[in-house]
Write a protein that binds this DNA or RNA. Structure first.
Lengths: 151, 151
DNA sequence: ATGATACCATTTGCATGCGAATGATTTTCC
DNA sequence: GGAAAATCATTCGCATGCAAATGGTATCAT
């Protein structure tokens, strides 16, 4: 005889053997991210996702300081610095000290940077589509909505 | 007068100004992951999420080779090596060469490793709950389902 | 048995990502 | 005006994460 299951759990009890790491949000989030990065790399080989995010955002806003751009693309000061350094090295971003506030590093796209954004944005749309390919349109919209709420 | 909108789009046309990087799955996925990692760190300070994942999985399977464990927790050979090295340095994992197949590095939890898993798993459950706190139970289940499909 | 092939682990190089400390500048507040 | 606090950028150290190359070992096919 196996022990009878309680018909009602009067208190929330801890079930010791029931935790599975690979079913937790954190784990699945990490895996989904991995797959997306792989899809990205298969379409865009010359930039990483964070680099493209910074570039694309910079195209939107025109001119902005390094840390402010970082805030817009969810990168802290240390991270955005490295990203911008690499974009600078590729000649996609121009840098100048702010005249009135000498602390600020003002960023702008170069002509090559604008070209890159124009060229890559259609590919980026395909990357999004391919990442969401396992889902219906409706499911994809739901996922994006829920994901945004926990982000 | 502004130009009239076409009533029917007969072909799927590219809308040049409509792409917003911060609304794409990849971006939101990255942000959600960031928030989860931050929540994790606020509850568990002595291990990182990948380290806990490896440890927890190792507790599940008992004994396994390094690369096989890596496959179970979605880390390539180079990544899992670093993670295991750190767990080894903390005395949570024991390592031994496989007798019959001298290529394999067999991993096991130490007593301290088992204790750590027992101690941290309840916290990990709270981390999951807090990450999903902005959602209802039902929404959380939906998110996890959709996320798993694209992972 | 042996040569080709596959598998396991390691190493190197590069790119995020974050915490913490530092230095320079600006703003605030009295 | 001038000290205190806030802001901006940089640097360091550490931990993923992946590609590519390497060396050791095992397996497979002939």
């Amino acid at each position: 005889m196996s022990p009878a299951k309680p018909r009602l759990a009067l208190v929330t009890e801890h079930d010791p053997g029931n935790y599975r790491v690979d079913r937790q949000v954190g784990f699945v989030l990490r895996k989904a991210n991995q797959r997306h990065v792989a899809i990205f790399a298969s379409h865009i080989t010359d930039l990483t996702p964070p680099q493209f995010a910074a570039l694309s955002k910079l195209a939107d806003v025109g001119e902005i300081s390094q840390n402010q751009l970082g805030a817009l693309v969810a990168m802290d000061a240390a991270t955005i610095k490295g990203v911008i350094d690499r974009l600078k090295a590729r000649g996609l971003v121009d840098v100048a000290r702010h005249a009135a506030d000498k602390r600020r590093l003002m960023l702008r796209l170069t002509e090559a940077g604008r070209d890159a954004v124009a060229r890559l944005t259609p590919l980026a749309e395909r990357i999004t589509a391919e990442t969401l390919a396992p889902l219906s349109q409706r499911e994809a919209a739901t996922l994006l909505k829920l994901l945004t709420r926990i982000a």
